[in-house]
């Protein structure tokens, strides 16, 4: 009897060991190396944006090896969309709500203990969170929507080139994983605002100062955050009058979602979508120089998918 038990035990151990080596089900070694996955919609343009955004997000994450690559069981995940502005989703000033909702769901499915969604907004959070549609989408998907509390920022050592220390939101930094989910937009100073610029939504204080040396400051905060997963919303982008927008004529459909581990590459990709040469985007150039990623995203282990 004892032998039988031992055999069973060994059998189980072998299966468990194999799973540990291979990673969670469905993740092949090749997928786990993918650094960038671009999902493009080639289906019917009449499909509602929410459906398109959902499918693109699912595919982009899948192409990267699935959410299980980033989320471990019991993790607390912070999703940082851009929901800075009191604008409805169609104006492309904020990340599309269904991208955020889908990411929340994928995190929960991957075993996250808790998924939190929050941003330090530019307009009042009480206005922007609901207007962006993200509050509702995130809550429906099971996330906790966090209104950042101005009195709870803490000064942290960034040890950057320009920013020695700054007020950062502890709850974000203390999460096991921060998923950066920006939308690609025009911006007068940055030219293009994508992933690195989106980190401005986790800091407190008079952050407007950063514009005086934007590229350096963005490198400082990005280096501090050590990005793992970023998901770029380019389902529609804001070509002019960014980052606030407000005119549908300035919005262009791009039907793309890109997920990746390299923020510099994603920023370069986003800048291209907006019609810029990445080498003219200061933060992209500075980011590469700082070793935060690679500007030439085509050289990465990249996947391009079409979704219909």
């Amino acid at each position: 009897m004892a032998g039988q038990t031992r055999r069973k035990f060994l059998k189980r151990s072998a299966v468990a060991g194999g799973m540990a080596v291979l990673g969670p089900a469905g993740v092949s070694a090749a997928q786990a190396d993918t650094q960038l996955c671009i999902a493009r919609w080639t289906g019917n343009a009449d499909v509602p944006m929410s459906e398109e955004a959902t499918k693109l997000t699912e595919k982009a994450i899948e192409g990267l090896g699935g959410m299980g690559r980033f989320v471990k069981k019991g993790d607390v995940v912070w999703i940082k969309p851009n929901m800075a502005w009191n604008r409805a989703p169609e104006f492309a000033a904020n990340t599309h709500p269904d991208i955020v909702g889908t990411l929340v769901r994928l995190c929960m499915d991957a075993g996250a203990k808790k998924v939190k969604v929050g941003d330090r907004t530019c307009h009042k959070a009480k206005e922007s969170y609901p207007k962006s549609g993200i509050e509702a989408a995130a809550k429906t998907a099971g996330a906790e929507v966090v209104y950042l509390d101005d009195s709870r920022f803490r000064e942290m050592a960034l040890d950057g080139e320009r920013l020695e220390k700054w007020l950062v939101y502890p709850e974000i930094v203390e999460s096991d994983l921060v998923i950066n989910v920006p939308i690609a937009k025009h911006h007068a100073i940055a030219k293009a605002t994508v992933c690195m610029k989106n980190y401005m939504g986790i800091v407190g204080g008079n952050r407007g100062q950063w514009h005086q040396a934007l590229a350096t400051c963005l490198c400082d905060i990005t280096a501090f955050m050590k990005p793992t997963l970023s998901v770029l919303d380019a389902t529609r982008v804001l070509l002019r009058n960014g980052p606030t927008g407000g005119n549908l004529n300035d919005v262009k459909r791009m039907d793309t979602v890109a997920a990746g581990t390299d923020v510099v590459a994603l920023d370069a990709f986003g800048a291209e979508l907006l019609g810029n040469d990445p080498s003219e985007i200061e933060s992209v150039v500075a980011g590469e120089k700082r070793g935060l990623g690679q500007m030439d995203y085509r050289k990465l282990a990249m996947k391009e998918l079409t979704v219909a």
């Binding site: 911006h187 007068a188 407007g208 514009h211 005086q212 040396a213 934007l214 606030t244």
Partner: peptide, 26 residues
């Protein structure tokens, strides 16, 4: 104003200007 008085980039005002097109240009 920083770009006039102190030779620095700023444009926070332009960033936040809500009209479209923006009332603050440069």
């Amino acid at each position: 104003c920083l770009p006039f008085a102190y030779g620095r980039t700023c444009l926070i005002c332009e960033e936040h200007c809500p009209t479209s097109p923006k009332a603050i240009y440069f």
